[in-house]
Design a protein around this nucleic acid. Structure first.
Lengths: 136, 136
DNA sequence: TATTTGTACTTGCAAAATGCAAGCGAATTT
DNA sequence: AAATTCGCTTGCATTTTGCAAGTACAAATA
């Protein structure tokens, strides 16, 4: 798997883990949905290829950002959820959203969602983290 | 060049611009150094290949994140600096640093630098943005 | 003035990552 | 018992990356 490391810089080390075009979208899905099956990710609009999804999930799991759980309904299904390490990417995610809100053209629904965040960023993050932490 | 867009999600759109393994490192260099020549980037420890550097700089320029300036000393040199759009990536950069500080093993010097940030994040960002804005 | 050096790239090619389609084994449904 | 769902894996074409060498122009040097 991806095991090469460049420098010791925090940015560089972080990018080595989740700095590709897909990983943060997987994390985003889990921040919205709290937990997803493999199929949920595939159906989530971005059209990620199934093999890429598999390697990314493996990478994220190896690095302790997501965890695999047994699905309560079926042994054939798997549940993915964020670990604390993954949940703590929320501030990064928020700042990317705010930057995009300022500089990119986003659909109205996205803009609306971000209005709430801008009202009180710290509070939003805090309550959202609490929600994500709750054991389902 | 890279012109494909995936969904309308802010994360996805942002990643389409700077979501590769190198772009944020270029931005980071400019946040530290304020302005760099092409050669400065090459010498900055990460060992980025020269062709990759060229295409990334072009991409970042096309997307209004960096700007090219004439070097005051020589017509042979070029100066790259962040635009406002690029400077506004600072909060993203800070949050990545804080996440890395919490979860990855970083060298002591990096840890020390981040102590200052943690003391007062908002203030740090504000003054750093002001510094970056100053016309050299 | 001629020549060498520095600076910002470009080019060619091999290696790696990505993307697409089909397949596969185990679990579940019919 | 057969068909379907689910979470992947595999094979292969396309794209991106990485390395090494080369090029064009400006500037310093002889």
């Amino acid at each position: 798997m991806d095991t090469k490391k460049r420098s010791d810089c925090p940015i560089s080390c972080s990018l080595d883990i989740w700095g590709d075009k897909w990983s943060l979208l997987i994390v985003r899905d889990l921040m919205f949905a709290k937990q997803c099956t493999y199929g949920d990710f595939l159906k989530s609009g971005e059209k990620i290829a199934t093999n890429i999804l598999a390697t990314r999930l493996q990478m994220l799991e190896e690095n302790g950002i997501v965890a695999k759980l047994n699905h309560p309904d079926s042994k054939a299904k798997v549940l993915y959820k964020l670990t604390q390490k993954g949940i703590d990417l929320l501030p990064v995610m928020i700042e990317i959203n705010l930057w995009a809100d300022k500089y990119l053209t986003l659909p109205a629904e996205q803009k609306a969602l971000l209005k709430e965040v801008k009202k009180n960023k710290e509070a939003f993050i805090k309550t959202r983290i609490k929600e994500l932490k709750e054991t389902s």
